[in-house]
Design a binder for these strands. Structure first.
Lengths: 158, 158
DNA sequence: GTTGAAACGCCTTATAC
DNA sequence: GTATAAGGCGTTTCAAC
């Protein structure tokens, strides 16, 4: 699927304002409402737009601290990996989990209230996950920025 | 601001389906439409709901590979940090940037099409950012999961 | 908290160009 | 791509309970 400038404009707007009305969106994209509506539907059914979500405020929910944790397991047996992955997904403080190349097996992003809270999560939850041999925690001091907006790569442009 | 079970139900739904109609949401939350509408407005104005966004498909956009990069700068002078932060935010492939404690100064998450593409980003863009002394790249093999849904902490429950 | 009503805007589909 | 029309649905506000 190729995307032209208008598609990009639509995607850019919706990535920032997911609940724009179609008429507002049409105006911002410089399109008639019907044309805009058709394009959005196409973008949705083609899978370019995956879904719409509400983003909650980490601050307002008292989850100010992000910690990255490198996880090394006892071994790389298939069952060990599956057991860990299943268990870690059930931990609500873990926002993201990647299987990694290199030293550690997994990298996870953990969201907690403060350092105290992390101590609890680390000791009572993470270190008890199946197969975990070692945890290396890296504290973030400050989030410089975070994008939800994904750039449209050149090779998809019209 | 305290949140009761119904608020949590609303937040959970909206974090997964950000464009639910108010009437649909009301039904799922077990509320009348007007009561539901009032609660959502309150959650929005109080800042618990930060914003609504469309999530694009990384796959459909051909951005399959996530790379984490630990960035070490020449020094920690204020100007050095500011210059780097300003420049890195202008790189669209960088989705997130944290100032870190510990060995490296920054941790960034980079989204690219493939390893080739990363090679280009690494050599032509990242290593040219102001103040960069060392880059340590960690490739992800697979995203195990990623949440946009944030749990409501116990201490905020009614 | 609930229901119901009313006004308005938007969506959605369908026209035709 | 544009414009327009029509019906139905959803939102938003209000009043009353």
């Amino acid at each position: 699927m190729r995307l032209d400038d208008v598609d990009v404009a639509i995607l850019t707007e919706l990535q920032e304002h997911g609940r724009l009305t179609n008429s507002e969106l049409a105006e911002r994209a410089g399109l008639s409402a019907s044309a805009c509506h058709r394009r959005v539907k196409t973008l949705e059914t083609s899978g370019v737009i995956d879904r719409y979500v509400a983003i909650l405020s980490e601050k307002a929910l008292g989850r100010g601290i992000t910690v990255y944790v490198q996880v090394t397991l006892d071994n790389q047996k298939r069952e060990t990996l599956v057991a860990f992955e299943t268990a870690v997904e059930a931990v609500p403080e873990v926002m993201e989990c990647y299987l990694m190349s290199g030293d550690a097996d997994y990298l996870i992003r953990v969201l907690v209230r403060d350092a105290n809270d992390y101590e609890h999560v680390h000791r009572e939850i993470l270190s008890g996950l199946p197969g975990v041999a070692r945890l290396v925690s890296s504290f973030t001091i400050r989030r410089v920025f975070s994008r939800t907006t994904m750039p449209v790569p050149e090779e998809l442009r019209v």
